[in-house]
C-alpha cells in the first residue's frame, strides 16, 4: 500500500517521452512513500517497450499485451485491473492528450480522487500536488485527503530517467470486456503540411492573441518582410483562421528550434512553450511583465506591440 503505479504511453510504435519522465517522478515519489515503482505498459510491442523502460528505480514492469494503439476503453479497464493487482497508494498517469482521454475515467471507475497536470508531487504525511492556474500566472498546492489517489503528470516537466535498471518484467493477463469497448480508432492523420515548414526557419517572428484583430496582421507582415523572417503564431491565430495550421507553434502544432524566436503578444502557455522552448534565443514583446513567456525569454521588451513593432520595422528597413 505504499507503492506507485505509473502507466506509460506509446503511439504508432514508439514510446512517448513522458514514459521515462514518469519513471523519474514515480521513483522519487516511491522513495518518499517507502514503496516501489511499478510501470504498466498497455498494448503495442510490449516486450520491446519493456526492454526500453528497464530503467533505474523501476521494480516491476507489468505488460498488458492487448491491441496495438491506445484505446481509452481498453486502457481504462486494464489500468483499473492493474491497480487492483498492484494496490499502489498513488497512480501516476500522463497528462497527455491521451491521458485527458482516460485518466478521469480510471479515477472515476476506481472511485479515487484525481489531480491533473501536476508540476510537483510530494507525500509527507498526505499527498500534496503542485499545479498551475490562471494561464500559468500562479501556482497552487492541492492537498489530497485520501489514502489512495491518482495524479496526472505534466509532460516535459521532469527530466527523463536514462540510466538502465533491472526490473522484473511480468505479463499481466487483463480481462478486457470487449462489449464495453464502444469506441474504435480507425486511423491517424497528419495535418499541417503545406508550403512552409516553420521548423526549418532560422528566424521566426511569432504572433499571438495580443494582435487582437486580423486587420492588424499587416503590421507583423511588414516586419516579416523587412527582416526576411518566417511568420508563425500561437494557436488562437490559427483557430481564428487568420493563419493556416502549418504556422502554429506548440504541442499540437510544430516544434521549432530557430536561432531567434521573437514572440509578439504571446503569453507563453504551457502548450505553446512545448513547441518553442528549444529555440537558441527567445525574445518577447509583451505588455505584461509577469507573462509566463518572460520566464523563458533571453531578451524582453515590456511595451505595447502596436508601438514597438512599427518602430522595429523602421529600424530594420
Amino acid at each position: 500500500m505504499s507503492d506507485v503505479l505509473a502507466i506509460t504511453e506509446h503511439r504508432q510504435g514508439e514510446l512517448r517521452d513522458v514514459s521515462s519522465e514518469l519513471v523519474t517522478v514515480g521513483s522519487e515519489l516511491a522513495a518518499q512513500q517507502g514503496g516501489a515503482l511499478h510501470l504498466g505498459i498497455i498494448g503495442g510491442d510490449v516486450d520491446a517497450f519493456a526492454d526500453e523502460l528497464s530503467l533505474e528505480g523501476v521494480e516491476t514492469i507489468h505488460t498488458v499485451d492487448h491491441g496495438d494503439e491506445f484505446n481509452h476503453d481498453v486502457y481504462t479497464q486494464a489500468t483499473a485491473q492493474l491497480f487492483g493487482a498492484v494496490e499502489p497508494s498513488t497512480l501516476l498517469l500522463p497528462n497527455s492528450v491521451n491521458g485527458l482521454d482516460y485518466a478521469p475515467a480510471v479515477a472515476s471507475t476506481l472511485d479515487i480522487p484525481l489531480v491533473t497536470d501536476a508540476i510537483g508531487i510530494s507525500r509527507d504525511g498526505g499527498l500534496e500536488v503542485t499545479r498551475e492556474m490562471y494561464g500559468s500566472k500562479v501556482e497552487t498546492t492541492v492537498a489530497v485527503d485520501a489514502d489512495v489517489a491518482a495524479v496526472s503528470v505534466r509532460p516535459a516537466e521532469w527530466e527523463p530517467t536514462t540510466d538502465a535498471g533491472d526490473p522484473s518484467i511480468e505479463s499481466f493477463d487483463a480481462d478486457i470486456d470487449e462489449d464495453a469497448v464502444k469506441s474504435t480508432v480507425t486511423g491517424f492523420e497528419a495535418v499541417a503540411g503545406g508550403d512552409v515548414d516553420i521548423s526549418e526557419a532560422d528566424f521566426l517572428i511569432s504572433i499571438g492573441r495580443g494582435i487582437e484583430e486580423e486587420d492588424n496582421l499587416p503590421l507583423i507582415k511588414d516586419l516579416v518582410e523587412a527582416t526576411d523572417a518566417t511568420l508563425s503564431s500561437s494557436r488562437p491565430i490559427v483557430d481564428n483562421g487568420w493563419l493556416p495550421k502549418n504556422r502554429q507553434v506548440g504541442q499540437s502544432g510544430k516544434v521549432v528550434t530557430p536561432d531567434v524566436y521573437l514572440a509578439i503578444g504571446i503569453s507563453g502557455a504551457v502548450q505553446h512553450v512545448a513547441g518553442m522552448k528549444g529555440s537558441d534565443t527567445i525574445v518577447a514583446i509583451n505588455t505584461d511583465p509577469n507573462a509566463p513567456i518572460m520566464d523563458l525569454a533571453d531578451y524582453a521588451i515590456v511595451d505595447d506591440l502596436f508601438d514597438v513593432v512599427p518602430a522595429l520595422t523602421d529600424a530594420l528597413e
Partner: peptide
Amino acid sequence: SPLSRTAMYEPESEGDATVFEGSAE
C-alpha cells in the same frame, strides 16, 4: 471533496531576461 487548495502564490521568476528599457523607438 477530498481535494482542497492549500496555497496559491506567484511562482518565483526563473527568468533572467535582459529587459530593454526606454521608448518604443
